[in-house]
């Protein structure tokens, strides 16, 4: 279980905060004894139709602003790693309060991680954030048999956001996770 405590974070080595790209780095001790440089990136959602939505990513750096989000790491304190990222996200949101941060849960492993993190830290995160879960749904056509489909026959999914439902277990994951500054 990942425990988020934004009063207990790693020291940031440097940082930049802007509406184009926000980035910071810190060192995370590993179980095997060394430390790994970690980078947090908050950048606009790739869809230009969603100008106030930002994506958050965390992982070892690649180049000057990218991250490796596929590498498996064994942090000494995963909670502290995530707390550091969440604190940076909170700082970003206080600078740009109209924005909302999204976490893509398409991959089951990541969705489980985000879902569990939201549930396990309901109180600590709820102090600062509104949390939102997004499901996809498809419309049942009036013939009661078929569903709305794209031209290629695939289901026509639409997003349905709701206030994060804490009664949903990790066996009932959302497809996308979001959090924004609490009013």
């Amino acid at each position: 279980m990942i425990t988020v405590n934004i009063e207990r974070t790693y020291d940031l080595l440097w940082g930049e905060i802007s509406d184009k790209l926000s980035i910071t780095e810190f060192k995370s001790p590993q179980v095997v004894g060394d430390t790994v440089l970690m980078r947090v990136v908050i950048e606009p959602h790739p869809d230009p139709l969603l100008p106030n939505v930002y994506n958050l990513a965390i992982g070892p750096p690649i180049g000057d602003s990218a991250i490796d989000d596929n590498v498996r790491l064994r942090h000494v304190d995963s909670g502290r790693v995530f707390s550091t990222a969440i604190l940076f996200a909170l700082t970003f949101l206080t600078e740009f309060p109209e924005t909302i941060i999204g976490l893509d849960g398409t991959d089951d492993l990541r969705a489980t991680l985000y879902h569990s993190m939201f549930i396990a830290n309901r109180e600590s995160m709820g102090e600062y954030f509104e949390t939102i879960g997004v499901d996809w749904y498809v419309k049942l056509l009036r013939n009661q048999i078929d569903i709305e489909r794209n031209n290629d026959g695939t289901p026509f999914f639409k997003p349905r956001p709701e206030a994060f439902d804490y009664s949903r277990t990790r066996h009932d994951l959302y497809r996308y996770y979001m959090f924004e500054l609490k009013n």
Binding site: S18, K20, L21, V41, E43, P44, H45, P46, D47, L49, L50, V53, N55, I62, G63, D64, S65, A66, I67, G102, D104, G105, T106, V134, P159, R175, Y176
Partner: peptide, 12 residues
């Protein structure tokens, strides 16, 4: 800025 922006994700 934005050197590693994904072209799409689940939401898009």
């Amino acid at each position: 800025s934005g050197t590693k922006r994904q072209s799409t994700d689940g939401l898009s």
